[in-house]
Amino acid sequence: MSDPRGGASTTLVLVRHGVTTHTSGRRFSGGLGGDNPPLSDEGRDQVGHTAAWLGELGDRLDAVIASPVRRTRETADLIAARLGLEVTEEPAFAEMEFGSWDGKSFAEVAAADQAGMDAWFSDLTAAPHGGESFHDVHRRVLLGLGRVLDAHAGGTLVVASHVTPIKTLVGHAVGAPLESLFAFELAPASVSVVAFHPDSSVQAGYRASLRMFNALPPGRRTLLDTGRW
């Protein structure tokens, strides 16, 4: 991978979007193919705390990148306004498309399509009708990662994204199997940090490391505190 900044690592500060009505209602909420709800007032408040926290990094942050989905674009806009940066979009970092499940609760999908849900949890190539599989998302997220690393080599970037793409990037960084996505928990508006270090001796052209996972600004309650699992 080309590295115009002389081998400096590229750091992604991954921010999950704040809550929407779908998040609070435990409903499947995918990318642009679904209901595409905005942040709720609670979600905007969550992101505001995260934006203020990231603002402490000042000019150490070089760019803000967003999934084009409404809730992530709103998250990115709030953060970028605090940092004084523009937002660019990377479609590959959008949430998994849930097809016919989008907007439905887990209970509603289980009642209507238990076999499909069982397959989705046991086979990473299985997809909801009209949606994507975990393998599909993994492939497009890593293609997007390559574009971002090429375009922003050596930079420190805020990336506003979703549960599945963020877990995909974290799992990729630590060399975990794709099945590990089921073992990760991500709070709304949480921050995870991965760094990519140029290394021409490996096939990917870089080595990755995880520097932070599922962190919340001081004063924000965790899932353990609230009991909202």
Rank of each mutant, 00 (worst) to 15 (best):
P165D: 07
S122F: 04
F106I: 05
A173R: 14
A110T: 02
S122I: 01
L149H: 14
A107N: 00
G131I: 04
V174R: 15
T88E: 13
V137F: 02
G146W: 08
P128R: 03
L85K: 09
V163Q: 14
A119Y: 00
E89H: 05
F121E: 10
H162R: 08
A107T: 03
K167Y: 02
M117C: 02
A111E: 13
L145I: 04
G144I: 07
A81R: 08
T168E: 07
E89M: 07
G175K: 05
A160T: 12
S105E: 01
A153I: 10
S105D: 02
I166F: 03
A115K: 00
F98L: 12
P165F: 08
V159W: 01
Q114W: 03
D113E: 01
V163Y: 04
T156H: 14
H135P: 00
V174M: 15
K104S: 11
G175Q: 07
D123A: 09
L85Q: 01
M96T: 12
E97P: 06
W101N: 09
V148C: 05
A173P: 15
D150T: 12
A127I: 05
F121N: 01
H129V: 02
V163K: 08
V141K: 01
G131W: 03
A126E: 00
G131T: 07
H138N: 11
L124N: 08
K104P: 09
F106A: 02
R139V: 13
F121T: 03
R147Q: 14
R139Y: 06
P128E: 03
W120L: 12
V148I: 15
G103S: 12
A92M: 06
G116F: 00
A119V: 05
G146L: 08
V158I: 15
G154L: 12
L145H: 06
E90Y: 01
L149M: 13
G155V: 11
G84Q: 10
D136K: 06
A81L: 08
T164R: 10
L157F: 08
E95W: 10
A151I: 12
A110I: 01
A176D: 07
F98P: 02
R82D: 03
G154N: 14
H138I: 01
A115F: 01
H172N: 13
T168V: 14
G155N: 11
E97D: 14
L169P: 10
D102V: 14
P165L: 07
G116K: 04
F93V: 07
H172A: 14
L142I: 08
L124M: 07
T156A: 11
L124F: 02
S161T: 13
P165H: 07
V109L: 00
E108T: 03
H138V: 04
H162G: 04
H135Y: 06
H129E: 09
V174F: 13
G144C: 11
A173M: 15
G99M: 10
G146N: 12
H152A: 10
P128A: 12
R140W: 05
D102G: 15
F93P: 11
A94E: 14
M96D: 02
G131F: 11
V141F: 07
S133Q: 07
V158N: 08
